[in-house]
Design a protein around this nucleic acid. Structure first.
Lengths: 219, 219
DNA sequence: GCCAGAACATAACACTGTTATGTCAAAGAT
DNA sequence: ATCTTTGACATAACAGTGTTATGTTCTGGC
């Protein structure tokens, strides 16, 4: 019988969805103000103007809140990687998407840390959240695949995408770490893009890089 | 007067140091078993066979415990980056140190996550802990600096060190993330070293890389 | 009208880090 | 030798956390 009610639930879901959006907005605010450590169930409920139990009625407790913010963060990632200008070359498309990625990481540091770094101990993303993460990776992989020759295998394309993401995320993560205060990283985004350029050019070079350690230039 | 007592404190420090080591061992065990989320003051005290207040007598509460583990982690990093064989070339030295770094990240995933990722919300490393982190970076910077021409500026050497660490850490961090389950990253360490090789060769190339986006091979 | 079911509130439970209070032994000062 | 201080230790408490059991209100379908 609960199945039949589900359709009715949608009818009265204007209020419910509104409440959910309300809670999520309150959680987002608190999250941006002070990170995960100031994200308490009671604080969210208080700011949303409801009782603590409301978090458990509309979400599955704190896990649900974190999950929603996790998805929010990955949607920011996806947005940052879509480039409108279709007239660009494959290489310039990647560079443009990467520049936007770095800007996003800088402007939404809290969300970035939530999905990649400082996360509540014991939090595991839900299947839905992981799906959004997969979409983000697919977007990246599509950009990179357009750069490789059509003869490239699926694994080669994936490896190239991982390589691209690794250098970008490496710079972002290092930048957010304490050690970054030791050195001058004021131009870190330009540095990251320069490093990415070197790697991208390496991808487009000899189709299959050799396994060995010593890679000598054939100049 | 408390200053005079400090010397006596060392005389009776056999017990005190012993207790500190005991507590730290218990904390390390719990940490390796279940990460930061199973690191509670009471659990540590129980395993060390003392009362909870002991954590506050010998350390400064949980912050002190996390700090000690943080330092422990960075000492693992430093150890991993020292290479004994001095007969290697500059390039091979970096590759060797990096391989050891990746192995360390794999074998001590918990410590790595503590210093670079999943850390307790609100935890800030102490000055001592940051000093150890700085030492780790210096070690890396020294390896990379040996590779550049002596005419390289201090900033160029630092940038090269950051670049090296970014690609290594990028792969490690991506590997530890949930999205890594989407793709085959079984050979991630070889991939990381290959990417690093490309970047290192780029460093040794034309002394000052151009700012522009398009880097054409002069072959 | 009636009643299932959702939303809500109050209060409690079990846990967390931290600290106030008190006890006890050891070491320096008189 | 006695007094005093200092540190380690234990018990208990406090304020906070996520979560849930219980009770209440309200709405929508029969």
């Amino acid at each position: 019988m609960a199945v039949k009610r589900a359709q009715k639930a949608e009818a009265s879901s204007q209020n419910s969805e509104e409440a959910k959006a309300n809670i999520l907005a309150a959680a987002s605010e608190l999250f941006l103000e002070g990170g995960v450590k100031s994200l308490s169930v009671r604080a969210i409920a208080a700011r949303a103007g409801i009782s603590t139990i409301g978090i458990y009625s509309h979400f599955q407790g704190k896990q649900g809140i974190l999950d929603a913010l996790y998805i929010e963060g990955f949607e920011l990632v996806i947005d940052s990687m879509t480039v409108a200008d279709t007239s660009l070359s494959g290489r310039d498309t990647i560079m443009q998407a990467s520049a936007q990625y770095l800007d996003m990481a800088e402007n939404h540091a809290a969300h970035y840390r939530l999905i990649f770094g400082e996360r509540d101990p014991g939090f595991v993303p839900s299947p839905d959240a992981e799906h959004v993460g997969a979409t983000a990776f697919t977007t990246m992989a599509r950009h990179v695949a357009a750069l490789l020759p059509p003869t490239a295998t699926r694994k080669q394309k994936q490896d190239a995408a991982v390589q691209t993401w690794a250098i970008l995320h490496g710079y972002v993560s290092l930048r957010q770490h304490d050690v970054s205060r030791l050195v001058d990283m004021s131009d870190w985004k330009a540095q990251a893009l320069r490093s990415l350029g070197v790697l991208v050019d390496g991808m487009q070079g000899t189709s299959v890089p050799r396994q060995g350690v010593s890679v000598t230039h054939d100049c």
